[in-house]
Simulated scan of single mutants.
Amino acid sequence: MMVAVCILIIIIILLAIYIVFMELQLKNINKQLDKRLQDKTRQPISLALQSRKLNTLGANINRCLKAEETLRLKSVNEEKRVKELIANISHDLRTPLTAIKGYQQLMEKSELNDNQRNKLEIAQKHTQELGKLIEYFFEYSYLINTDPELKLESINITKMVTECLVSSIPSLEERNLKLKFEETPPIYVYVDKEMVKRIIQNLIRNCIQHSSGDIEVKVLKKKDAVISFRNPVEDSKKIEVNRIFERFYTGDKARNNSTGLGLSIVKILVDQIGGSVEATLVDDKLDIQVKFPLG
């Protein structure tokens, strides 16, 4: 009887030691995985304990990590090719567009009858639209291929929004759009002035191009400075608001004549200066809010 008890105790002790070693090895695996995530290394998982099941687990983990790394590198290379393609397209399109504008200017100076002049004006209008699209491509390709040097300073964001809205009045009148904007007391933010100006201009252009009614603009002071652009949209059910800042997203019919880059540019610029941007769609009205750190 005593012999059986001793054997049982020995077995229990051995099992306890084995379990402790197993826990230590699992802890070691977790530690190595954490190190890979924190240091962004490609070091494979290594095991010190000779256990067939743990060795199989480690081998499977390493295979998964290698497959994930392969997919990541493939994605990075694909993203790089897309960026290069956008940059090349935007550059290549500028040259023939300049030539087209030159010939149109020459035609404008020549003697044309009313019908010919009307057709020329239509061609010039479409040329201007094409120029705007190319500028979007050029700006986007520049932003995704460069690391900007921020020139941070304290600026009156209320004043900047007001100035940008005033300069856009002709475009608003052309689309028969009314603007609702209540000027608030000065709100100061600590940002890059030129980048914020481009953000506001892109948001205004987005509203003018896609709004189906009056545009509401607000500048608020909460934990951050908030700029809100709100406008009604057609076919709101076709807009996937969670994708609205994605590159080339043109989900609704109202965006068919755009590149889908305007709001993508806004997102990139906002991220670069440490702000945030979000969009909501309520009662067929799209509300885009940009937040900047107070200065």
Rank of each mutant, 00 (worst) to 15 (best):
N176I: 05
S171I: 01
M195C: 00
I239E: 12
D252S: 11
E121A: 14
I239N: 12
L286K: 09
D39A: 09
K35M: 05
E174I: 03
I29L: 02
E182A: 14
I273R: 14
R205T: 15
F138I: 07
I169A: 04
G274T: 03
L152M: 03
V189F: 04
Q25I: 08
E129W: 01
A4L: 07
L177P: 00
G295W: 08
E121L: 15
S171W: 00
A16S: 14
I7H: 11
E69R: 11
F248Y: 06
K237H: 10
V166Y: 08
L93V: 04
V226K: 09
D283I: 02
T162L: 10
S211V: 05
S110F: 09
E108C: 00
Q272M: 13
T127A: 10
I61W: 01
T41A: 11
H91L: 04
T56V: 07
P185L: 06
C207V: 07
M22C: 13
Q38P: 04
K109N: 15
A225K: 02
E234Y: 06
E216Y: 05
V20L: 13
R230P: 01
K159M: 06
T70P: 00
V226W: 06
I17K: 14
P185Q: 12
F248D: 12
T162M: 08
R94N: 01
I215K: 07
G213I: 09
G262W: 00
S228T: 11
F248K: 08
C207G: 12
K267F: 01
H210S: 02
G58Y: 04
P232D: 13
F248A: 09
L85V: 05
